[in-house]
Design a protein around this nucleic acid. Structure first.
Length: 589
RNA sequence: GUUUCCGUAGCUCAGCAGGAUAGAGCGUCCGCCUCCUAAGCGGAAGGCCAGCGGUUCGAAUCCGCUCGGGAACGCCA
């Protein structure tokens, strides 16, 4: 069904047409002066030059044509040439009613369904997820849900970092510590043990140690890089160790994502692209794009319109090993071949912009993707602590994601117990987890993805202001009323809406009417923060209405039913929105 | 150095296909529970939208320059 603003614009456009002006001038926007009007049109001022006429006169002409409109209760032309619009209550009611009766509140299906792959820019295995991984998980999950809701076919791929230098480092460190293991004996031909020669805890210690050492010990780093080549070439012992590392780390990674309510359709990684690398390298060589430079195989990607130096994309290092760009190209090939992707969306730190620019250009030039395939890197900013510097533990170390979640849940639990004494321990724990997740995700998503932001636990877990808990509280309030209404014997289905009885009710209705507009914007801009802003507005509008209107004690049954219908719709829209952000509301809190 | 992103209230952030008095939240101050969750609602104070120019009837928004901050610039991912 048509978007609300488009319906209103159509009416005003008609007015411009009738008055003898270009219809396109009739575009309507939400008023930025709510004290004067609900919606506004600035077209008269834009048209003044073209028609050599004072804008106010144009506005007056149009207002006159719209004076008996069924859409507007009031249209006034105001200096210097604004058209101030106030809607008929019945028009608003009718739209809200049709939203309630239509699937997805009347959001229109896309003209063409796209096959979208969302790459969450996966974490490296063998080390625990840290707070930095929250961003790609939260944003990626929301974008996946938004695309799906808008009617597209979406595949989410965690895309683990399981093929790079970190794996070589771990194996090299292991060799140093336990050289006697059969994996390092080239003459060994028997089966390797089923059990890994290390635990997750050891793994967590091995990697940082290896990483630190590689920075000072050149020979050690050299060996690690050779180990990478060995893994990639499938040398038995090395591959077996790699498999062990995977088997040990994966359950831990899965648990972390499960705690965040983040789900993947594919648990692929860079290693899955490994077997495709020779093919892709050959394809690039045949295309004539590659050449040798300083011992490495590269592809030029600079273009004439570039304002900065774009270095060539390295396909194979001078030692013959593949790297980040190569596996990403192979992955793109895989996604084109097996998923017929129309659109590829990557979540990764914004500092990786150059990498994606290079990879996308190579993919385009080499014909790995078709000319129509969209490729987009959503670069997100850093998550900082209250001091404005990258988020750390109190001791200054890297904060584990697991601990962050635990701390937030703990804080939430404490607050619940403080104010709701009658609640059971078990319910409090469960509710704390639900609200905690909302606090974390809303806190993250309400910021524009591309900007750095300050992760302030106190602020995010607050029940006041623009926070996840405030949104949940609003939903819970509605649920509580609806529950009581049902206890009184009322049904929630098929209730008739009534024209708004008071200003806050009309405000609430108009806010609901903006859902489709907002949704299309959030999808077009792949911007979850647009949903957050809308949610907050809607929650505010509801709370004002709630304060103004005593619903359950209303004597007039029709009025009461109309309000209940409005509450049901409001709850549904709110819950749809939080689902798109990747969290949910409890029954009570 | 080059390129790029950013600079909005004390703090954290919206707004940016140009429009009327620049918005929220937190914090501060003042009101509102015999009534559906006060985890709420209303109100007050707080701004030369970094600075200077330009385009325009009109600029936080578009274009230059300056200052201040972050980031990226070939074998890490």
């Amino acid at each position: 069904m048509k978007k609300f603003l488009d319906l209103i614009s159509d009416e005003v456009k008609k007015g411009f047409g009738l008055a003898g002006y270009e219809e396109e001038l009739g575009r309507v926007t939400v008023s930025n002066r709510p004290d004067l009007c609900e919606y506004q049109c600035n077209g008269a001022m834009a048209g003044a030059k073209k028609y050599h006429k004072a804008p106010l006169l144009i506005a007056q002409d149009v207002a006159q044509k719209l004076s008996d409109s069924q859409v507007f209760e009031e249209v006034s032309a105001v200096a210097p040439g604004f058209l101030n619009l106030k809607l008929q209550r019945s028009f608003v009611r009718a739209y809200v009613e049709s939203m309630a009766q239509t699937e997805k509140f009347g959001l229109e299906a896309p003209e063409a369904v796209q096959n979208i792959v969302v790459d969450y820019g996966g974490p490296n295995v063998a080390k625990p997820l840290h707070v930095g991984h929250l961003r790609s998980a939260a944003i990626g999950e929301s974008i996946k849900r938004i695309c799906r809701y808008c009617g597209h076919q979406v595949t989410g791929d965690v895309h683990l970092g399981d093929w790079g230098l970190q794996m070589g480092l771990i194996i090299t460190e292991l060799k140093l510590r336990k050289p006697e293991l059969p994996y390092f004996d080239e003459a060994y031909e028997g089966d390797y043990p089923a059990e890994a020669p290390f635990t997750m805890a050891e793994l967590e210690e091995i990697y940082p140690a290896a990483s630190a050492r590689s920075k000072t010990d050149a020979a050690y780093k050299q060996e690690a890089m050779e180990a990478v080549v060995k893994i990639q070439k499938g040398v038995r012992g090395y591959h077996a160790l790699w498999k062990h590392i995977m088997d040990i780390s994966l359950p831990d990674v899965k648990k972390n994502y499960a705690d965040l309510d983040v789900e993947f359709d594919l648990w692929k990684g860079e290693s899955d692209a490994g077997p495709l690398i020779p093919e892709v390298v050959e394809l690039l060589e045949k295309s004539g794009l590659t050449y040798e430079s300083e011992g490495a195989l590269v592809v030029d990607v600079k273009e004439e319109t570039d304002t900065k130096e774009i270095p060539p994309c390295i396909i194979l290092k001078s030692d013959g090993a593949a790297l980040y760009a190569t596996t990403d190209l192979a992955t793109i090939k895989d996604r084109m071949d097996s998923l017929q992707a129309d659109s590829l969306i990557y979540l990764a730190d914004k500092r990786q912009e150059m990498h994606f620019l290079q990879v996308f250009r190579v993919a385009r030039k080499a014909g790995i993707v078709s000319p129509e395939t969209k490729m987009k890197h959503i670069g997100f900013g850093t998550m900082n602590g209250k001091d404005g510097k990258p988020f750390k533990t109190r001791e200054g170390g890297v904060m584990r994601l697991e601990y962050l979640i635990r701390d937030v849940n703990e804080e939430m639990y404490r607050k619940i117990m403080e104010s709701r004494h009658e609640i059971s321990e078990e319910e409090a724990r469960r509710t704390a987890k639900t609200i905690g997740l909302a606090a974390i995700k809303y806190g993250d998503l309400s910021n524009q993805a591309g900007k750095d932001y300050i992760f302030d636990v106190d602020r995010f877990t607050s029940f006041e202001g623009d926070t996840g808990p405030y949104i949940l509280y609003t939903i819970v309030r509605i649920k509580s009323i609806l529950g009581k209404y049902q206890e009184q014997g009322g049904g929630l289905e098929g209730l008739a809406f009534k024209d708004a009885q008071n200003a806050p009710e009309k405000e609430l209705m108009m806010k609901l009417c903006g859902f489709n507009e907002m949704m299309e914007g959030a999808f077009a801009e792949t911007a979850p923060h647009r949903i957050c802003a809308y949610l907050y507005d809607l929650a505010n509008a509801f709370n004002k209405f709630y304060h103004e209107t005593k619903i359950l004690t209303e004597e007039d049954a029709d009025k009461k039913a109309g309000w209940i219908a409005l509450l049901v719709l409001t709850r549904n829209v709110l819950e749809t929105c939080i689902d798109l952000l990747g969290f949910s509301a409890p029954e009570r809190m």
